[in-house]
């Protein structure tokens, strides 16, 4: 059984609304529980979810571009936890996060036909839209001081990052952790502040009391190091 088959099967069963519905993040579990799944396949599924999920999401986006609501529903089911999770982390406020998530998916509906698989993975496309929306919203609704304070607070209660807990993505999560560790602490801090805090490089510099060019370098070097470690090409 290929991962794709298992995924679509899971997806179908959830349409039936059984109490044992799998969640999108659990999908890889299905593979891991498949006795005959070749190890290499399971490995690929968990350490490199982009390949298969990407394919599915690309297909769905193509259908959404033609106005297919069922595809839209499945796309939402597979990705809404990511979009909402990021919005909550950046915006903290639940209502703002819901509004932002709503805007993101409306944008998906309207712009799906513009998605170009050659220009990047669907998840990257989606998270780019999501982050941009969340950042726009947080910058217009809160002062940077508030954001910093809230960011500080939000990092205290790490973490409902369920991904890290799910068996299916554990290897991928481990790779990320391992790669994050190749960054200096200051690089990590700067990238995180910009990503989850919604701060500009200048605000990061002010917050960390560092020179502006230094922060620019940390962010650039940190992301390049991460990219290299994760093998993003």
């Amino acid at each position: 059984m290929t991962l794709l088959e298992s995924r679509s099967r899971t997806s179908r069963s959830s349409h039936g609304g059984t109490a044992e519905d799998s969640r999108p993040g659990d999908l890889c579990l299905v593979v891991m529980e498949t006795p005959n799944a070749p190890h290499s396949e399971a490995q690929a599924a968990v350490s490199d979810p982009p390949a298969d999920l990407s394919h599915r999401l690309s297909v769905l986006l193509e259908s959404i571009g033609r106005g297919d609501q069922a595809a839209f529903a499945e796309f939402y089911q597979l990705t809404s936890r990511r979009v909402f999770g990021m919005a909550r982390r950046v915006l903290i406020d639940p209502e703002l996060s819901e509004d932002t998530t709503q805007e993101v998916f409306l944008q998906v509906w309207q712009n799906a036909s513009k998605f170009d698989p050659k220009a990047g993975s669907p998840l990257s496309w989606l998270m780019t839209i999501s982050h941009r929306r969340a950042v726009d919203r947080v910058r217009s609704s809160q002062s940077s001081t508030d954001r910093e304070a809230k960011y500080g607070a939000s990092t205290q209660d790490i973490d409902h990052d369920s991904v890290a807990d799910q068996v299916g993505s554990r290897l991928e999560a481990e790779a990320v952790v391992r790669c994050l560790e190749t960054l200096t602490e200051t690089q990590q801090e700067s990238v995180r502040l910009a990503y989850y805090g919604g701060l500009t490089y200048r605000e990061v510099a002010e917050r960390l009391n560092a020179a502006v060019p230094t922060i620019k370098s940390r962010i650039r070097d940190g992301l390049i190091r991460l990219k290299t470690c994760l093998g993003v090409s």
Binding site: M127, H160, V163, L180, L230
Partner: peptide
């Protein structure tokens, strides 16, 4: 970034 920051809710 999409692979690194994977928080879900």
């Amino acid at each position: 970034l999409a692979r690194t920051f994977r928080i879900e809710e």
